[in-house]
Write a protein that binds this DNA or RNA. Structure first.
Length: 891
RNA sequence: GGGCCUAUAGCUCAGCUGGCUAGAGCGCCACGUUGACAUCGUGGAGGUCACUGGUUCGAGUCCAGUUAGGCCCACCA
C-alpha cells in the first residue's frame, strides 16, 4: 500500500476500530485455560461527556489490557455507565422544565421515569462512543449499566443481606440537605467552599434581668429561630452566674436555658454560642448532651416553616437579612463583622447544604470496614502510588455510617415495604400491596418512596457486572479482577466501598479471593496549564475529542502517557499534544522508510544473519528494550515504558540505525544490504508490537503494510499478535560498547567540522587518528557509514596521519581529527570548546579518582565495579592528556 | 487544626535503593539537509538542583528545620 508522507490518523481510525469490532478482537475466548486479566472500567455517568481525566484513565487501562492480551492472557475489560441518580435526574428535570414548564411532580413518578429512560436511550451512549474514539478495547458485548434490570437484582440482594445481618437501619439524623434537589446527600458529596460570610453579634435579653443581655456570635443569624439554648464554657468567669438561667429569644419569645459546655471556645466571638440543634451538627450534639428540644425551622425547599414566626415563608437568604434588620430595629444587634468561613456546598447542585433532621436509611459501616482494612494489611490489595493506602485506611478507620437513601426517583427503589402500622419488610422480590406482612400479618400498604444512593449500586460493580448474585460462568472465571484505575477523589466513595462489598457479599469464596481487585492505580489529576483543576464550571477544560480530531487518538494517548508521571498531577495545555503528534509522525515515517526498502520482495528476514556491528547493536537494543518495557508495563510504569520506547524509536532506530543503514542499502543486493533489510524488518516488526498498546491504530495499519511489503499473507491483526519475547541470542554487550565508540567518532568529526571552513564550505574529508589497535579495527570496519553520518566524502582511520601538516585538532574522547591543509579552523572557538571539554573531563576524572581513593566505596563495591572504575580512570586520563596537548598546541 | 504532595535550565518535567562530569522535550541561537520525516539532523547558549543546618569518603538524591505553592481531611459557632 502507498503510505502518505505524513501520518493521517483520520484516514484509518474509524475503519481500524470497525475491523477490530468485526473480528471480535476485544472479547476473551469463551473457553480457555489461559490466565485471565480483568479490568472493570470506572463507570462514567451516563450524563457525562469525555473529559481529559477519562481520556487519561481510558488510555492507561487500554494500555494494560492490550498488553496483557498480547501476552496471551484472556484479557477482559468490562465497560459500562453509571445511572448517577442525582446528576441524571437533574439534567432531565431541567430539560423537562425548559421544554414544557413542567416539574417532575406534574408528570408523576412513572411518567417522569419514562422520560429519564428515554433520555438515557438517546444520549446515554455518548461517553462510551467517545471511549471508542480513544481506541478503548473493551468487550462491548458485556457493556453494563448500573440501573439495568440485572443490577437491580444485585442491589436488592445486597440490601436484603445487609438488612438480615442488622447492618441497615432507619434513623432520624441531621443529614446534608440539598434544598435545590431536595434530597439528602452523603458527606462525601459535600464540598467545603470558602465564603466571605458574616459574624453577627445578637443580644439575647436575660430573663428576669431587664437591661441585661447575653451576646452570642453567629454566622447564621436566621437560625436563631430554632435556638433552644445558649452555651458558655464552664470556666468562663464572665457568664458563670448566668448558667442555669434563661434568655428570651426575640421574635418567638421562647425562654431558652443557658448551659455550660466544654465544647465552647471562650476565645471565639463572645464566648457564648447559641444552640440550634435542628440546623447544626455541633449544636445537635450539644442539644443531646443537655437534653434540649430540637426545632426544625426550614421546609425541604429552604424556606422557613411555621417555626419561623414573622419570617415564615421566606427563603433562608432573605430570612437572614430580615432577621438582622429587625434585630437592629429592636436594638438587639450589637454588630456585624466580616467573617470568612467554610460553607458546605453540594457537589451536584452547587447550592449551600442545610443540615436538616430527617428520616433516612443508613448502613452500619464499621463491621464492613474491618475486612477492607485487612485487605491492604495482608497484601490482597495494593495502591499505586502507595501513599494512597494511608488515605484509604484513614477513612476506613474513622468511617461514619452511610446514609444510603435519596429522595429521588431515578434510582433503585429501596426494597422495603410497610404494613399499615408502618412495620417494615425488606424483600428481594416485589411485594404486592395488600399482601400480608409475614410477621405482623397486617396488610402491606406501601413501598418506601426513596431510592438508594448511586454508590449503593456501583459498589457492587466488580461482581454484579459478572452476574452476581448468580454464580455465572463469568463470575467464576473473571472474579476477582487484577487492575482498577481511577481518580483519587473516589477512593472513599467508590474504591473502599467496593472492597467492603467484595468481602461482605462474595461469601462463597475464601476470604483470600474476595478482594475485588489486586491493584488500585490512582491516576494523575489533570490540571490546566496554570495548575488549576480542569472542570466544566471553570471553563478551562480541553476536550479530548477535539484533540483527537486535531492530532489523532494515538497522539493524544501518547502525549498523555508521556506527561503523566506516576503520582504526579499533570499540567496540560493544548500544545502538549504536539509531542505525541511528532512521535506518531516519526514512527510513521520510519516505517515508511523501512517498507520502501523491503519493496515487495519476498524476504526471509530471519534467515539474514547480521553482518555489521550496527545490526548486532540494534538487535541487542531491541532485546533490552523489549525486556525493559515488559517489566515496566508489568508494574504499571506507563510513563517509563513510553519514554523508553520514545528513546529507542527516535534516538536508536531513527537517528542511528536507519542512518547507518543507508549507505549499505544503496548497494542493491550484497549480503550487507540484505542483512540491513532483514534487520530493519525485524526491528520494525517488534517495534510495532511494543508500540501497539500505546498507539493501537497506527501500529495496526503499519502492521498490515509490513506484511504486505514482505510478501506475506495477510497476518492476524496486531491486536491479537503475541508480544515479542526478548531474544537472549541478541544480547550483545560488545556491540553495545563498540557502537558507542562509533558514535563518539562521528560526534568528534562533526564537532571539528562545525568549526572548520574551506573557503565558504565545510571540509569534505577528514583523517582520524585512533590510539588503540582494537578500536581502530572497529572504526575501520564502520568508516564507510561513519563518513556518511559526518557528511564527508572521505574519512580515513589511521594510526598516523598521512598528511601530518594538516591542521590537527583533538576534540574529544581520544580521537584526533585532521582536516585538509588550507582549511580555516575557528581557533578561538575551538580553544573554547577544548577548554570546556578539558574542564568536564577533569571533573569526571576527579570523581572517579575520588571514588577509587575511597575506602568505603572499595569495600562496598564488587571487583567488577572497581575494575570498571579503573578502566574509566585510564580512559579519562588519556582523554585529558590528549585534550591538553592539543589545547597547548593551539596556543 | 491534622495529613499528603511539590519546589532541578526561559517553559513542562525526568533524575528508582546516595557515586552526576546534573538530563529530556519545547522554546532560543548557529549550521546542515530537504529522496523516510509540512520536516529532520548536528552543534550551542542556558542550572550555586528553593533556603539553612546535619549524616556521609561522597547529597539534586537521606534526615531535621525554614520558606513558597497545591491538594485532601476536620464540627470552631
Amino acid at each position: 500500500m502507498e503510505l502518505a508522507s505524513r501520518y493521517e490518523p483520520h484516514a484509518f481510525e474509524a475503519s481500524i476500530y470497525q475491523r477490530w469490532l468485526e473480528a471480535d478482537a476485544f472479547r476473551p475466548a469463551d473457553e480457555s485455560d489461559a490466565e485471565r486479566f480483568v479490568v472493570m472500567i470506572p463507570p462514567p455517568n451516563v450524563t457525562g461527556v469525555l473529559h481529559m481525566g477519562h481520556a487519561l484513565n481510558g488510555t492507561l487501562q487500554d494500555i494494560v489490557v492490550r498488553y496483557q492480551r498480547m501476552l496471551g492472557k484472556d484479557a477482559l475489560w468490562v465497560p459500562g455507565t453509571d445511572h448517577a441518580g442525582i446528576a441524571t435526574q437533574a439534567v432531565v428535570e431541567k430539560k423537562l422544565f425548559e421544554e414544557t414548564g413542567q416539574t417532575r411532580e406534574d408528570l408523576g413518578r412513572e411518567a417522569f421515569l419514562a422520560k429519564v429512560w428515554e433520555w438515557k436511550e438517546k444520549h446515554g451512549n455518548q461517553i462510551l462512543e467517545q471511549f471508542r474514539r480513544l481506541g478503548a478495547s473493551c468487550d462491548w458485548s458485556r457493556t453494563r449499566f448500573t440501573f439495568e434490570e440485572h443490577m437491580s437484582r444485585a442491589v436488592r440482594e445486597a440490601f436484603v443481606r445487609l438488612w438480615e445481618k442488622g447492618l441497615i437501619y432507619r434513623g432520624a439524623r441531621l443529614v446534608n440537605w440539598d434544598c435545590v434537589l431536595q434530597t439528602a446527600v452523603s458527606d462525601d458529596e459535600v464540598e467545603m467552599v470558602s465564603k466571605k460570610g458574616i459574624l453577627a453579634y445578637l443580644k439575647y435579653p436575660v430573663e428576669g434581668q431587664p437591661e441585661r443581655f447575653l451576646v452570642v456570635a453567629t454566622t447564621r443569624p436566621e437560625t436563631m429561630l430554632g435556638d433552644t439554648g445558649v452555651a458558655v464554657h464552664p470556666d468562663d468567669e464572665r457568664y458563670r452566674d448566668l448558667v442555669g438561667q434563661r434568655v428570651l429569644l426575640p421574635f418567638v419569645d421562647r425562654a431558652i436555658p443557658i448551659v455550660a459546655d466544654d465544647s465552647v471556645d471562650a476565645e471565639f466571638g463572645t464566648g457564648a454560642v447559641k444552640i440550634t440543634p435542628g440546623h447544626d451538627e455541633n449544636d445537635y450534639q450539644r442539644g443531646q448532651r443537655h437534653e434540649l428540644p430540637l426545632i426544625t425551622i426550614l421546609n425541604p425547599d429552604g424556606t422557613l416553616n411555621e417555626e419561623g414566626g414573622p419570617f415564615r415563608g421566606l427563603p433562608r437568604e432573605q430570612a437572614r437579612k430580615q432577621v438582622l434588620k429587625q434585630l437592629e430595629e429592636l436594638d438587639l444587634l450589637e454588630k456585624v463583622e466580616d467573617h470568612p468561613h467554610n460553607v458546605p456546598v453540594s457537589d451536584r447542585s452547587k447550592s449551600i447544604i442545610e443540615p436538616l433532621l430527617s428520616e433516612q436509611w443508613f448502613v452500619r459501616m464499621e463491621p464492613l470496614a474491618q475486612p477492607a482494612i485487612r485487605a491492604v494489611k495482608d497484601g490482597s490489595l495494593t495502591f499505586r502510588p502507595e501513599r494512597w493506602t494511608k488515605v484509604y485506611l484513614d477513612w476506613l478507620e474513622n468511617v461514619h455510617d452511610w446514609c444510603i437513601s435519596r429522595q429521588l426517583w431515578w434510582g433503585h427503589r429501596i426494597p422495603v415495604w410497610y404494613d399499615e402500622d408502618g412495620a417494615p419488610l425488606a424483600s428481594r422480590e416485589d411485594v404486592e400491596i395488600g399482601s400480608l406482612h409475614p410477621t405482623t400479618e397486617k396488610p402491606i400498604v406501601r413501598q418506601d418512596e426513596d431510592v438508594l444512593d448511586t454508590w449503593a449500586s456501583s459498589w457492587l460493580w466488580p461482581f454484579a457486572t459478572l452476574g452476581w448474585p448468580d454464580r455465572t460462568p463469568d463470575l467464576e472465571r473473571f472474579y476477582p479482577t487484577q487492575f482498577l484505575s481511577t481518580a483519587s477523589e473516589i477512593i472513599y466513595l467508590w474504591v473502599a466501598r467496593m472492597v467492603m462489598a467484595g468481602y461482605e457479599l462474595l461469601d462463597h469464596l475464601p476470604e483470600s479471593e474476595r478482594c475485588p481487585f489486586q491493584t488500585c492505580y490512582i491516576h494523575a489529576t489533570v490540571m490546566d496549564a496554570k495548575g488549576k483543576r480542569m472542570s466544566k464550571s471553570a471553563g478551562n477544560g480541553i476536550d479530548p475529542i477535539d484533540m483527537i480530531e486535531q492530532y489523532g487518538a494515538d497522539a493524544v494517548r501518547y502525549s498523555l502517557v508521556l506527561l503523566t508521571r506516576e503520582g504526579q498531577d499533570v499540567k496540560l495545555s493544548e500544545d502538549r499534544f504536539e509531542m505525541g503528534r511528532r512521535f506518531t509522525n516519526k514512527v510513521w515515517n520510519a516505517a515508511r522508510f523501512v517498507l520502501g526498502q523491503l519493496g515487495g520482495e519476498r524476504l526471509d528476514v530471519r534467515a539474514e544473519r547480521p553482518t555489521e556491528l550496527e545490526d548486532r547493536w540494534i538487535l541487542a537494543r531491541l532485546a533490552t528494550v523489549t525486556r525493559t518495557v515488559g517489566e515496566q508495563l508489568d508494574r504499571y510504569a506507563f510513563n517509563d515504558a513510553a519514554n523508553e520506547l520514545y528513546r529507542f524509536v527516535w534516538n536508536d532506530v531513527c537517528d542511528w540505525y536507519l542512518e547507518l543503514s543507508k549507505s549499505r542499502l544503496a548497494e542493491a543486493d550484497g549480503p550487507s544490504a540484505r542483512a540491513a533489510r532483514g534487520t530493519l524488518a525485524e526491528v520494525l516488526d517488534s517495534m510495532l508490537r511494543l508500540l501497539h498498546p500505546f498507539l493501537p491504530f497506527q501500529t495496526e495499519v503499519l502492521w498490515e503494510a509490513l506484511h504486505e511489503a514482505l510478501g506475506r499473507e495477510r497476518p492476524a491483526m496486531l491486536v491479537r499478535t503475541p508480544w515479542p519475547t526478548p531474544s537472549a541470542s541478541f544480547l550483545d554487550v560488545d556491540a553495545e560498547r563498540d557502537i558507542e565508540l562509533l558514535q563518539a567518532l562521528v560526534g568528534a568529526v562533526r564537532s571539528i567540522r562545525a568549526l572548520t571552513t574551506i573557503g565558504d564550505r565545510k571540509p569534505l574529508d577528514a583523517i582520524v587518528r585512533v590510539p588503540g589497535a582494537a578500536e581502530r579495527a572497529i572504526l575501520e570496519a564502520t568508516a564507510e557509514r561513519a563518513r556518511a553520518l559526518a557528511f564527508l566524502d572521505t574519512l580515513t582511520i589511521a594510526e598516523a596521519p598521512e598528511r601530518p601538516a594538516a591542521s590537527a585538532v583533538g576534540v574529544a574522547l581520544g580521537f584526533e581529527v585532521f582536516v585538509p591543509l588550507g582549511a580555516d579552523v575557528d581557533l578561538g572557538k575551538l580553544a573554547e570548546t577544548l577548554e570546556r571539554r578539558v574542564k568536564k573531563s577533569k571533573g569526571g576524572l576527579r570523581a572517579v579518582e575520588g571514588k577509587l581513593a575511597n575506602a568505603g566505596f572499595l569495600a562496598g563495591a564488587s571487583e567488577d565495579v572497581v575494575e570498571g572504575e579503573r578502566a574509566r580512570r585510564d580512559e579519562l586520563e588519556r582523554e585529558v592528556d590528549l585534550l591538553e596537548r592539543n589545547l597547548a598546541g593551539l596556543r
